[in-house]
Design a protein around this nucleic acid. Structure first.
Lengths: 233, 233
DNA sequence: ACCTGAACACCGTTCAAGT
DNA sequence: ACCTGAACACCGTTCAAGT
């Protein structure tokens, strides 16, 4: 599953793909957050000397940019394109899908938030949001503004959510317990401890409820301003 | 202006305040962003050995947390507390004030976004937002949700804005020009180049307009949901 | 063209020692 | 209690050299 050291055939032939390098980077990111991603760590994971990484990416910054772009490309946007569904339903499904993907890769949030979001995947997503709001009956200008506001809300909410999960590491009294709890939950099989699993699900549902409440307020505001066609959730 | 090396009276007496250490950190942050803030750089700026910093803060992470808190405390929240003004006007004024402060310290955004926001200054701000929405006629639960959504929008918008200003450093074709432009603008006296200054002001106003448009949509959505009392902008 | 070893100029943090 | 010098285990990146 995780890319480990491979037999190094020495020689000029390119032995790795860019994606394999990004796989290693993403694995480090998922395990220890942004600060755990190092050029030397990636090199070690793929079995190359550190400086060989610069054959694939011109700098660590370029690598991280590519990683952010790829992570954005991994979110399933099929729900956004489903034209048989009412636009509001699609917006909500997409917001939930993006949240699910990013909370599964918490380190990715910081990366995506700091990125310019002008890569191909980001542009595709923006295009789909423009389409969505156009179908909702908004004129192009209002649709563009609305897409921006929606993106700000979704990404901002994700950033606040993962910031709340942060370690702090010095004061074990507060959030440390939550992290420890999550760790425990990740290790306890759901079917053996139904109560614990249920409590966790409830906690998550509360957070999801707050997220969706805000999303609905944003969509309400957009609808009222742009004269968008109303449609059920 | 910037804290430079001071005469070091050697001995056990504490010669610096925590604030002086944070001053140095903030200066580095403003000049070169988060990655320019190093324990050794701070130590050099205040004229201490690097490890002496650990007398003031237990770790770099704790230092950065304190810095984020202090930066949040620097935003003028008088506009939020002005009870003679309609609540919507206060919300807008506060949003603009916070934006002005954070765009003046772009590096601070990443710091604040990554912080838990549970320090005293953050709690004060949250409390004031709760008051604001209570005065707007919302019940406590809705006020709390609304404060969260408003914070997410404001901080999210700031994060997107500073991410757009990022360097990229490798491809000078795109945003590099904007950065260069801003640099040029910062160096050209406004009164000598009125056209250039006007163009910049217009560009900023467009951005401000988008920011406020989104803010109004969010407030509209909240108002509609919570049955808040309407008041003119 | 791709990869390596070695080196450069950095990091955050710890430790024993001085005052 | 506060500060220092020295050290440890790291960084990202560059360079000359090998295939």
């Amino acid at each position: 599953m995780s890319p480990t050291a491979r037999q190094r055939r020495r020689g000029p032939r390119r032995v790795l793909s860019e994606d394999e390098v990004l796989d290693a980077a993403q694995s480090l990111l998922d395990q220890g957050g942004t600060e755990a991603v190092s050029v030397r760590g990636i090199a070690n994971a793929v079995g190359l000397a550190p400086n060989a990484i610069y054959t694939y990416f011109s700098s660590k910054a370029a690598l991280m940019e590519a990683l952010a772009e790829r992570l954005l490309g991994q979110v399933d946007h099929g729900v956004l394109a489903a034209r048989d569904q009412p636009w509001r339903h699609r917006a909500e499904a997409f917001a939930l899908e993006l949240r699910a993907h990013l909370t599964a890769h918490p380190g990715a949030v910081e990366l995506i938030m700091g990125s310019r979001l002008n890569g191909p995947h980001a542009l595709v997503l923006n295009e789909m949001l423009l389409d969505l709001f156009a179908e909702a009956g908004l004129d192009p200008d209002t649709a563009a503004r609305s897409a921006y506001v929606l993106a700000v809300y979704i990404l901002g909410a994700m950033a606040r959510e993962v910031a709340g999960l942060r370690d702090t590491s010095s004061e074990p009294s507060e959030q440390r317990r939550v992290a420890a709890r999550l760790q425990t939950l990740a290790e306890t099989p759901t079917d053996r401890y139904p109560r614990t699993a249920a409590a966790d699900t409830i906690a998550d549902r509360i957070s999801t409820e707050q997220y969706l409440w805000g999303l609905h307020r944003v969509l309400d505001g957009i609808t009222a301003a742009g004269g968008a066609a109303e449609s059920g959730t």
